[in-house]
Design a binder for these strands. Structure first.
Lengths: 343, 343
DNA sequence: GTGAAAGCGCTAACAT
DNA sequence: ATGTTAGCGCTTTCAC
């Protein structure tokens, strides 16, 4: 493996000079020397050892993104936005998938923090047990940014958030305005703040329209297809009336779809389904699910921008950013009275 | 940031001793000393600086996985399998998404190789221009493993491959045996070896059954939903007869679906669609697409296993592994003669 | 059972 | 316009 020393020897200069040229700190170095160095560097195909560099600069130019589930297209989008922004800015991205396992999440944070990455973008579960970890990072001035996860106790951690409460409120209102009164709801994992906000938005919309919140119509899901399927089946078998179903994310809405079809009901004639996230699966579902669009890619770009500001010692222009969500109506319909009591 | 030196001072021992204890090389160190060191380590919440360690060991315990498109559930599965295996073995995974951009791919390889990662799992495009890069890595004894990408010139690079040719052959045969004679085909990006193999499998199956290979029925796609949509539209507008469509991956099959429905044809009554990959999207498509199952997760586990063997100086038990594929029949049907000439 | 010292490859004062 | 030197935090010989 060729080192800076070898380049220096071949060029008959000191390693300092080589280092300077390579790091663009060579204002005061003769063109001739520069040229010579670059030539030898090319010849030997030399690339500086990133580890050695990190050792002295205390910077790795790597950041990490911790996501719960990379198979979820929503997080895949986040990952893409984050990665693109990193690469554009001379950084690299450690993409870490926790599978929603708290131990994995904490292990990642612990290990990565030890100088492997200069900062992190975090989408962990953030239950109370995490507070201690985050507080420590805060104390150490270690840069990190939340995406779509909020911690009450750490209100001043920078973050990028979707307007989940309003979004859930509005999509519920949308159903209500179409005439639906009995709207079932499948939550995300309630350990995550966005799942709680979506639930609250749903409940508030019902209350504001003088509709009862029926706990039997609310099921706990997990943001996965299989969870949506399972909970929908349970709802259908409960023998309770509902004309619409709001799944807290599109993946669960897909699962709900399957369950409803297996049950022999027509969508949306007998049951309307709406989701959340606006996952990009063009034409796959027929009819498509009305949903809330979350600008995932854009949010990731913003999160990285904030993080890099933090890492490079700048004060971010905005350190907490909320993104309003847009309803994407893909053809929800009013309930059909005559078939509503299907159970 | 607490260092090994601080631990040593507090314990009244040398840093060597601390290092030994922490690295389990302390056979000859008294229990008392060990205990003391561990206590102080816990107290100060000390974790060794990974960068400094790498500097001397020449190992980072990181590997990288370069994929063309993390939004493709197939690669998300690969990523999951790779990551899980890494974590289990004390490694971490750099997940790199190239968006099929050759410059990005090459930049990743170049940068990562410089000691950021101990080895790589590669799913790049591997056109000729890559040979030079790979040859260099081979020369340097730098460990890397292919997944689903093959390079003719580098036949001895370890790799994990799906039986693409046989798979494509068999799914084509499946359609032929159902009675289909005019089978359209959408390729993947032909710069990738697996796309070429799938094309060849399709062609061979036709020939073996004395069916003509009609170039007008073959369109170049890109493994993306939008590509499947676009090429299918073109096929439909060409005014050529075909009763079945084989898309080289499920994502394109989904796109084809949309195009066909928009065109007003019934699936599978008027047109059968089959895909490849067996992407996990339960219940989303109605009717579902017959496809070939590729054991992506399992393949990733194997690839990491081989790579870690290489990194840790063992000889892998098998260094080139081919996985046979299984047809997943989700309800293909025979062509309906009377509606076949739909165009 | 433990320690001293060298050195990994690089950057950054501080010279000159 | 360039070189000398120290040092980043750790592991690893070699010594006692």
């Amino acid at each position: 493996m060729v080192t800076i020393k070898e380049i220096a020897e071949r060029c008959g200069v000191s390693i300092t000079t080589v280092s300077r040229v390579l790091n663009n700190k060579g204002d005061s170095i003769s063109e001739k020397t520069k040229e010579r160095i670059f030539r030898v560097v090319d010849e030997l195909n030399y690339v500086p050892n990133a580890v050695a560099r990190s050792m002295v600069t205390k910077r790795t130019n790597n950041i990490a993104l911790i996501v719960p589930d990379i198979s979820n297209p929503f997080f895949a989008d986040i990952a893409k936005g984050a990665e693109r922004t990193c690469v554009n800015r001379g950084f690299h991205l450690f993409l870490c998938n926790s599978d929603m396992d708290k131990e994995v999440e904490k292990e990642y944070i612990r290990v990565l923090r030890k100088r492997l990455v200069d900062g992190m973008i975090i989408t962990t579960q953030n239950t109370e047990e995490y507070d201690v970890i985050f507080e420590e990072m805060l104390e150490d001035n270690y840069p990190f940014v939340f995406i779509e996860r909020y911690s009450d106790k750490l209100a001043d951690v920078p973050g990028v958030f979707a307007g989940n409460m309003d979004g859930a409120y509005n999509i519920t209102k949308h159903l209500i305005e179409l005439g639906h009164k009995d709207i079932a709801f499948i939550t995300g994992p309630l350990v995550t703040s966005n799942a709680r906000y979506r639930l609250e938005g749903y409940q508030r919309a019902l209350k504001d329209h003088d509709l009862p919140v029926n706990p039997k119509l609310i099921r706990n899901g997990n943001y996965k297809v299989a969870g949506g399927y399972r909970e929908t089946k349970t709802l259908l078998e409960q023998n309770i009336q509902f004309s619409a179903l709001f799944a807290s994310n599109d993946l669960m809405a897909f699962g709900a779809y399957q369950a409803v079809k297996e049950y022999g009901l027509e969508i949306p004639e007998q049951l309307s389904i709406v989701g959340f996230d606006n996952i990009d699966m063009p034409g796959v579902i027929e009819p498509q699910v009305t949903t809330m669009d979350i600008p995932a890619y854009e949010m990731a770009v913003k999160a990285v921008t904030i993080l890099l500001d933090l890492i490079e010692g700048r004060t971010p222009k905005e350190s907490k950013v909320y993104y309003p969500l847009k309803l994407v109506n893909k053809g929800s319909t009013a309930p059909k009275k005559e078939v509503q009591d299907f159970a």
